[in-house]
Design a protein around this nucleic acid. Structure first.
Lengths: 260, 260
DNA sequence: CGGTTGATTGAGGCTGCTCAAAAGGTGTGG
DNA sequence: CCACACCTTTTGAGCAGCCTCAATCAACCG
């Protein structure tokens, strides 16, 4: 993590331990994501830096947003991993999406009612909190950012639809394979791929199950099966991919929905 | 595609049989939906009428959009029911959403790549096709419409998340109950509720299964069970609800996600 | 009337769940 | 440094929700 003296990116300095240093948190993750959809100029990027200047760290496993919170504030995730989830009274839980740097935790739009899900940090997370007026002004003054955010939101919808397909139609091992493929792609896009092509994913098997609509017991068995087939290994919160081609074919994975 | 005389609502006249007359297709369904989110003035409404002037009927079971189509054109559904679906090569199929009048079949935003799903008419459908420049101008000139559309898209995302919860966590009978609850609400909003509180839903049991991630055989058994419990009856493409309260409690249904 | 599509029913089987217990790992406090 | 608590992973046994296959029935249609 370089000391970036004159740079307008305050969160570079907020860097307690060396863990995150493996990832390029010295680039504004939001800008990085938006540029995949639409080229931003220097002014746009400065505006984004400005918006995300007031940022804070959240400890692993802590709630970033809770069900029922107002959805006024826009909360981009600048570093770390998090997930959206919906909990039942009887203990059932569904993970709705996994959030990587550049994703937006809260509602990315107009004022709306309370949110119907919670957002929880998976690792230590750096988040910004942008008041809605600030955000609206940003959109008005920077059409490129507005356009890119719209694209990003279309992709997010596509991801939701893909999860529906996954949950509705695929068997457990296909489901897990598909999730791994999706995450590998998204991790690459936000530069969180490890050298061996895998990525950090500090989920318990129970949480993996909550994402896949499976029990932790079954997740365990499916993981063992995929490991035995030399496709992936999941240990110590790290997902390794041994045979990406075959994994893709098991998952019937088509990455186009992540970029179009 | 009606002859467009002086009236700003051409599709009123395009009324071949009396079937649809049971429903208020003489109000612009898109305007009706958007006004639930934000008040429109007369100018806004006229602009919507104008946008949807060039409309056409699609026969039941015909494709409205196909996977791979460009997502440039904005295609609002003005009358009738339709659904989005994703088909596998091996015959599996998942229904991604059910579309009611006022919903938008295609991508409701910026230019984007090809769509990853198909849209198929369930009943005879009236659709409009708005070229993207027209649409963009509409959004620029009518902030109320733009805001309402944004809200609508947030609700649509909430619906997708709810389907994920449904598929991931609920048992077959809860799942079906939840779907019925959701549809009852949405049908009411677009004024398609029948007098007895049920609604037309011309799905085969196979298609119901494709929406719920179940086989048609199991759907049949679940329907019988819910019928035996005096909750609902599904016959001749009509869903009847006998005990809305108990149905809601079986489904663990909370309607707030449909409006906020 | 034969042909086709969808609803219904039955039998049997597999995927994934439940319950339960053991094994590893980790942090805390004595 | 050990004992203990707690959590996660792993494994086993048994069960059941849902699926597959298949046959029958009902409705519609040319």
């Amino acid at each position: 993590m370089g000391a970036v003296a004159p740079s307008p990116r305050p969160f570079v300095m907020t860097h307690p331990n060396g863990k995150e240093a493996a990832f390029p948190s010295d680039a504004n993750a939001l800008a990085l994501k938006l540029e995949r959809f639409f080229p931003l100029d220097r002014i746009d990027r400065l505006a984004l830096d400005d918006l995300t200047r007031a940022s804070e760290w959240v400890a692993p496993r802590k709630a970033i947003l809770s069900e029922g919170d107002a959805s006024e504030t826009i909360v981009p995730l600048l570093a770390g991993l998090a997930y959206r989830h919906k909990d039942f009274r009887d203990g059932r839980r569904q993970i709705l999406s996994l959030l990587v740097p550049g994703d937006i935790c809260g509602v990315d739009g107009r004022p709306s009612g309370p949110i119907h899900y919670g957002v929880r940090a998976l690792t230590r997370c750096l988040i910004a909190k942008a008041p809605p007026e600030r955000f609206r002004m940003l959109l008005e003054d920077h059409p490129a950012i507005a356009g890119a955010l719209r694209q990003a939101s279309l992709v997010e919808e596509a991801v939701l639809r893909t999860w529906i397909v996954n949950l509705g139609q695929r068997h457990a091992h296909e489901r897990l394979a598909h999730l791994v493929c999706e995450l590998a792609h998204r991790m690459k896009d936000c530069r969180r791929l490890l050298s061996h092509g895998g990525f950090e994913l500090p989920l318990t098997q129970q949480e993996l199950g909550a994402a896949l609509g499976l029990t932790s017991v079954h997740v365990n068995r499916v993981l063992q099966r995929l490991r035995a087939e030399n496709l992936i290994a999941f240990q110590n919160g790290t997902m390794r991919i041994f045979d990406a081609d075959r994994l893709r074919s098991v998952a019937d994975f088509d990455p186009t929905y992540l970029s179009a």
